Computed example of a mutant assay.
Amino acid sequence: MGRNLTTVGFDADDTLWHNERFFRLTQDRFAGLLADHAAPEHLAERLLAAERKNIGHYGYGVKGFVLSMIETAIEVTEDRVPAAVIRELIEAGQDMLAHPIELLPHAQQAVEAVADSHRVILVTKGDLIDQERKLAQSGLGDLFDGVEIVSEKTDAVYRTVFERHGDGADRAMMVGNSMRSDVVPAIQAGGWGVYVPHGLVWEIEHAEPPTHAPKYHELADLGGLADLVQDLG
């Protein structure tokens, strides 16, 4: 009889390596630059609204974030934002795109352990070039049987990905720090969803945990993943 679980998908940002904290640091820098024009809380609300609106235009990632900061700066200054501020926001984005990758605790060991017995797939969203750079710098690239960089993570996307790289979503698991993108749609597709909280979560990625779903699991960190996979597989 075949195994119940044959394929494990991993999210990338804030599951395998740090990401959100660099956005938070840049947003603090943004607040300092616009301190004479808007209180930090108000500026954060305006920026979040711009990001929500612009996801459909720019997708996820640093480039869309920078464009949303520039748009917000123009709006809160009523078209009077100094060119020097725009330049500094662009430079902040370039710094983010060049930042070295820092793996999260247990990330490499978890992927290596699971890859010994199951297919492992990286399923991430964001800017193609930036995600490829981060994967290359992570040192984890050779461990994955497939890599999917998608514009959005939905149940339909997971069905397609796990059909392409595995035995279908019902025999697949998705591991990640985003309830909205990694866990809920994977379970809706028929697979397992494993939530590994990171601590810093972008507001747009919040969702209610599907605690009553039989295929929902939560781990304190990736150190417990290999045992869970073996138990289910």
Rank of each mutant, 00 (worst) to 15 (best):
H212G: 02
V123M: 05
A220R: 13
H217G: 02
D170M: 09
Q137N: 13
H206K: 14
V161D: 05
E208N: 05
I129R: 14
W192L: 11
S181K: 07
M174V: 06
T160P: 02
E152W: 03
Q188T: 11
Y158K: 04
G199P: 11
P197Y: 00
L135N: 07
V161A: 09
G141S: 14
A156P: 06
L140C: 10
E132G: 08
K215F: 00
G168L: 08
T124H: 01
K215M: 06
V123R: 04
Y195H: 15
L222A: 05
Q188K: 15
K125F: 04
A220K: 12
G190C: 10
R171W: 01
L219G: 08
V184L: 14
H198P: 00
Q131P: 09
I204R: 13
H212E: 15
I204D: 04
P214G: 08
M173D: 04
D145A: 09
E205V: 01
I149E: 13
P185E: 01
T154W: 10
G168Y: 05
E152C: 02
L200A: 11
V150N: 06
D127G: 12
E148W: 13
E208P: 00
G168A: 03
F162I: 07
P214F: 08
A172I: 12
A156V: 13
H198L: 00
E208L: 08
D221G: 10
P197I: 01
E132T: 13
V157T: 15
R164Q: 15
G176S: 02
R164F: 02
M179V: 08
A169Y: 13
G146H: 12
V157R: 14
D170F: 07
K134Y: 08
G199A: 06
A220L: 11
D127M: 08
L128G: 04
G199E: 06
P214Y: 09
E208D: 14
G146T: 06
M174A: 06
V147K: 10
R159C: 06
H206C: 05
V196Y: 01
G190E: 10
V123D: 00
R180L: 09
V175P: 12
Y195D: 03
G141F: 01
E148H: 15
T154Q: 11
D127Q: 12
Q188V: 07
R171Y: 03
G141I: 08
Q137M: 12
V184K: 15
I187S: 07
L135F: 11
V150C: 08
A186V: 05
W202P: 00
P214A: 01
E208H: 09
H165G: 02
R133Y: 01
V175Y: 00
V196E: 02
S178P: 07
A207F: 04
D127T: 12
A136K: 14
G223T: 13
H217M: 03
V161T: 09
E163H: 15
V175M: 03
K134M: 06
